[in-house]
């Protein structure tokens, strides 16, 4: 080993420099509170992920658009119908918003329900047995900050864990120790949804005497000041009396994290906006 180091001096230099950087990284955290090494690895790795995503997207897009026109017309018709329906719904909501804006509690309601979002593609997903994280192709230069909520129209996805100028790492709500305030729509029963590293989540702090049925839909309560209020999380797939004072409830998320291709980042929860950018 020593003879090898003597023959390859640059190898020993690289090794020692890396050792120094490693030593620094376990002491230094960046402004987001992330370890330096973790931030550097994200900065170094994500250009590769972006390039792979760009190439794969370009090839599959070209194949879909030009080679596989099968079903294009049918999909076009369905999209037109959905667009028309959404247009009508939007007009109705604008009318409701106009009515609500004349009420006293309008500023509070606007703060809770109106927010600005940014659409970003997913360029990398971590293997689920390690950590439930993914990387999106938008970073601090697009106004994304740590702890910004990440959603899709189907439901919440997670929160921004770390950012670089061009990319962001998102922690999924199913990740171990990830959590969100959650409630039932009808009864307004509130608790805390917590991920445990599996594909379902645990809904904590619901007393045994409360009624929660399988199939009930769970929404964000807004109490965590992270996720917008009233966004769907998932549905209850198991509800039974727990051994403690709380029920044992498992919730299956609506979002299929393994097939996510695009997400929306809630950039500023307090800003007014028309919804999707």
């Amino acid at each position: 080993m020593i003879a090898l180091l003597q023959r390859k001096p640059f190898f020993s230099l690289a090794f020692l420099l890396f050792a120094n950087l490693l030593l620094l990284s376990v002491q230094v955290r960046n402004t987001e509170g992330r370890l330096l090494l973790r931030s550097l690895s994200l900065l170094l790795f994500t250009p590769i992920a972006s390039t792979v995503h760009f190439v794969v997207d370009g090839v599959t897009g070209g194949v879909k658009q030009y080679a596989l026109l099968y079903g294009a017309q049918k999909e076009n018709i369905l999209l037109r119908e959905e667009n028309a329906r959404l247009g009508v719904e939007l007009a109705q909501l604008r009318g409701i918003k106009s009515l609500v804006s004349r009420r006293e509690e309008s500023p509070m309601l606007e703060e809770q329900f109106l927010f600005d979002t940014f659409l970003a593609p997913v360029i990398w997903k971590s293997p689920p047995f390690y950590a439930h994280r993914l990387v999106i192709n938008a970073g601090s230069l697009k106004g994304i900050r740590k702890d910004d909520a990440v959603i899709t129209p189907q439901g919440i996805v997670g929160r921004v864990w770390a950012t670089t100028p061009f990319t962001s790492e998102v922690e999924l709500i199913t990740n171990d120790s990830a959590a969100a305030g959650a409630m039932l729509e009808d009864s307004r029963l509130q608790g805390v949804i917590q991920g445990d590293g599996s594909l379902t989540m645990t809904w904590n702090f619901i007393p045994n005497y409360e009624s929660v049925e399988v199939g009930d839909i769970v929404y964000t309560s807004g109490t965590d000041r992270l996720y917008p209020k009233g966004f769907p999380i998932g549905k209850v797939v198991q509800s039974r009396k727990g051994v403690t004072v709380y029920r044992d409830i498992q919730v299956e998320p609506f979002v299929d994290y393994l097939r996510l291709e695009e997400i929306m980042v809630v950039r500023d929860h307090s800003r007014k906006g028309e919804g999707i950018e």
Binding site: L13, L16, L17, N20, L24, Q27, V28
Partner: peptide
Amino acid sequence: IFLGLNGLSKTL
């Protein structure tokens, strides 16, 4: 100061 700062410079 942070361990590794002078370590890095003196290595070089």
